[in-house]
Amino acid sequence: MSYEDWFRKDRLPHIFCAGCGNGTIINCTLAAIEQMDWKKDDTVFVSGIGCSSRASGYIITDSLHTTHGRAIAFATGVKMANPNLNVVVFTGDGDLAAIGGNHFIHACRRNIDITVVCMNNQIYGMTGGQGSPTTPKGCLSSTTPYGCVESPFDLSELAIAAGANYVSRWTSYHVKELEKAIKTGFETPGFSFIEALVQCPTAFGRRNKFKQVSDQIEYMKAHSLLKAKYDRLVESGEPVPTDMFIVGELAHRKRPVMGAKP
């Protein structure tokens, strides 16, 4: 596949740990871009700080590796000043939902025409495994040594409530579906948010009974509930399993858009 040309080959292999899902999400994003027929000169990747945010540096286009949590604010400036550019933001759960939460909801509200791919590993990986706003209740991290007591954020629901035009959630196991979702995100005018749950074997899996990388993949595979199935369960009044998360296209609508291509 020719999306390999989009990598800065002189920078590979990247810094992600063995088994980290971030690399998979970069592959899916670039595969989607390849289908969009975007030109390298017209595409800008923006990212903040964290494991996920290193992604922009491995891609050969113009890329902006910014300060912690501010990626979307920088991307807003890029897109508004030159709407002809395709702007893609790589971010993580800590970057997007904790320090950058305000920028996130306001970008959704403005419905600015950018695509945000969030690699949600449910932990702060780069600083060594501290609890993040999406760490599930009861999970262990270096700052929640007795199990996380706070309720986690549902990032996709947050994006929908704040007004994003396209919201979808998949995992690093669902590569084909994720690729398709990101492509749909690119095609949809307005703010597109794709949440990709990824495994973090080093900081999350190790502490939470996923001995092998594949254990966490198996867990994500077994605990993802398709949106269509969820809707059927709700319609028929059957109980929805509480330990599962919904995957699929969660919102796709046509609210007014800012910064679209002229």
């Binding site: 923006v46 113009d62 902006l64 910014t66 300060t67 501010r70 604010a73 920088f74 991307a75 807003t76 400036g77 890029v78 897109k79 508004m80 000043a81 030159n82 550019l85 305000n102 920028h103 306001h106």
Partner: peptide, 13 residues
């Protein structure tokens, strides 16, 4: 914070 971020982003274009 977002203001100066957007200004820097715009400057790069």
């Amino acid at each position: 914070i977002a203001s100066i971020a957007a200004v820097i982003g715009a400057s790069w274009t």
